[in-house]
Structures are given as C-alpha cells and as structure tokens.
Design a protein around this nucleic acid. Sequence first.
DNA 1: TAATTCATGTAAAAGGTTACATGATTAA
DNA 2: TTAATCATGTAACCTTTTACATGAATTA
Lengths: 187, 187
Amino acid sequence: MPGELKTAERPGAEVELGPSAYMAMAMVRDGINTGYRIKQMLERVASFFWSASYGQIYPELRKLEAAGLLAGREVTESGRLRREYSLTAAGEKRLRTWLAEPAEPSLWLRNEGLLRLMLVDWEDRELARKNLRELRRMSADRLEAVGALVPPRERGRRIQALGVRLLEETVRWCDETDAALGPPDEA
Amino acid sequence: MPGELKTAERPGAEVELGPSAYMAMAMVRDGINTGYRIKQMLERVASFFWSASYGQIYPELRKLEAAGLLAGREVTESGRLRREYSLTAAGEKRLRTWLAEPAEPSLWLRNEGLLRLMLVDWEDRELARKNLRELRRMSADRLEAVGALVPPRERGRRIQALGVRLLEETVRWCDETDAALGPPDEA
DNA sequence: TAATTCATGTAAAAGGTTACATGATTAA
DNA sequence: TTAATCATGTAACCTTTTACATGAATTA
C-alpha cells in the first residue's frame, strides 16, 4: 500500500522496541538512571553476556523518552550536567509485558578467539598454541573482572556465579588443550 | 584530503577484511567450498560461538573473489548448479597472516535469555522461573545438538568438548537456580 | 598542570539480518 | 503430488560501532 504508515509514524501508536530498549528501561527502573551509569553497569556486571556502546545507549534513551516510556530531566550537581531518567507508567507496563511474554530469546555469539582456533591448522602446533593462549588470556582477564564483583542482591550474585563458572571452564579447557597439544617443538 | 581514495577504491590495493571473510577463506581452504556448505558447517559445529546468514556469506564470497583471494567457478552436477570456490595464493597468504597476527580478538555476546533473567524482579518467583526455564530449554537444545556431533578431527572434537562443557554448566546452573528459588508459590 | 573521570551526544560507516525471489532435485 | 533439501542470490532495513566533538570536575 502506498499510503501506509509505518508503526513509528502512526501517531500515538506503539514504537517497536528491541532488547536494548528494555534493558535501558529496566536499568532506569532499578535506579541506574543515566546513560553513563547504564554503560558502567553493563561493563561491570553483564560483560559476559551483554554489551552496548554510548552511541547506542544515548539515542535509545532519547527515543524512549520521545515515545513517552521514559521521562528525562536535566540535573546539575556540583556544576556537572547530566540527564536523569525515570520510568513512566506506560514504560513500566511495556517492560512488564516484555518480561512476561515467552518469545524465543535471541542468542547471538561471536567469539573471534575461538573462531581463530577453529580455523588454524593444528598441525602447526606453535600457531595453535599462540591463538590458544590469546583466548586463555582474554578469558582469564574477564574471569578476574567478573569474579571481583560483589553484587548486592542474590540475583546479581547468582548471575555472577554463572559467569565465573563459564569463564573458569573456558580457562581450564585452554590449559588442557594446551597440554594435549604436546611439548613445544624444540624443548 | 578531498581527492583521497579509500582502500577499496585504490586499484590493486588490499581490501579490508573482517573475521567473517577469513572464516570463509579458511572454510574454502578446508574443502567446504560453497556458500551453502559453509552455512551448514557453521550451524552444525560452530553454533555456540559463531554464526552467519546467507545474506552475509554469499556477498562475502563474491567480494573475496573480486579481490582475487578466492577463485569461483560454476559447477553443474546432476542438473544442480553451484558455485565452487578455491583459495588463491594471495588468499592463502592473507589468511596465514591473519591467523598469525596477535590482534586482540573481538568478543561479542548477546544472550537475551540471560538478560531477561537479569532484568526480571526475582521477588516475582514465577516470572523468574519462567524466564529461567526458557533459558534452560534453549541451552539444553543446543547442548543436544552440539553433543550429537562426531567431528572427524581432534581439533573439532576438542572444540566440541568446550561447547558441551559450557552448555552443560549453563543447564546445571539453571537447575540449581531454579531449586534455590524455592518451591512454587502454591504447591 | 596534566591526566583521568564524569557526562552527553552526533554522523558516518560497518556489519549483519530478514524477507523475498527463483528453481531444480529428491524423498515421503 | 507434496514437502523437504539443495542452492544462490538481492534489496531493504536495522542495529550497532567507531570516531569525533565538547566541556566541567576531580585526582595525581
């Protein structure tokens, strides 16, 4: 149809939201109410299963505000300007619905370290080992970061525990695989 | 500079390649030499750490061919037309370099199931449980698929083992968390 | 005084998916 | 005959990143 309007253009109609939008709303609901703080929080507690850049977060918050799901206001504290958001009733409703609907959650993984490891010729032991150690290093770094957290609530501690386990398992696998690769070419 | 040419426009110059391009080249090197087969292979063996759609793979192969890194030819077998690729000397060189360079490998994770779980209010036990079970179901499905593989080479078996372990760990965590959530609200 | 942190944002580009279109072959 | 598998591709769209720009406050 030529005169058809997209959802976003139909005034008053619901805007379509992706997981990142709901993430932002839930963060705001929990008191993490600025773009900057949302980013910090993600980096700290969610790095092993979620991420977002400022370039995504800030426009997302603005969009949510324009849609009436978040309310933003400017706050100046000790000379510092920031934009604080709160969840509107409409936003809360929207968020609750999404959290309750049993839609198939997307799973989207890209681990370049593992990809490399799959692609290298393992006959070339030293090359395989090099890529393996890089993967180990990255996993160990992440493990350290995730393990250092002290989440205030049970929920956070549980999720942290999963991250720790998955990362530990990866590090262990790297070590075992390294050992299985045999001694260095010239020992 | 106004008259400056981008890398891709400078004739004979190297095209910039992302991990997906190297993935394709390595697959072709290993005899997985059509777009269709690359996709199948990824789905089967790499689903827990890598994925790509046809909409990405086919143009990527064409691009690589145009850059002289892959050579493609049309093959008709029992009436079926397909495009088979082989790795050129230039492609092999490029791939080897990438595999050997110690660039920080990217890590890109988005597990919506876990995100939901982080965002739901755990006070609402039933809602938390619902999301938890959905995550468990997805992980168990994937575990089954990955576990069913019988990779021909040691390399593949090793990587499979990692997938199995990570997925098993996730399923176990789901069960433990479910139990920790306590008995159903009305038992 | 210099570097880091707090804080927000934009524009352009990259990277990727979805939906669609096509058509032959093979298995049920 | 119908459904599934094999097989390739495009166009529109969307999400997300990167790089940049700005500036005040705080810490070293």
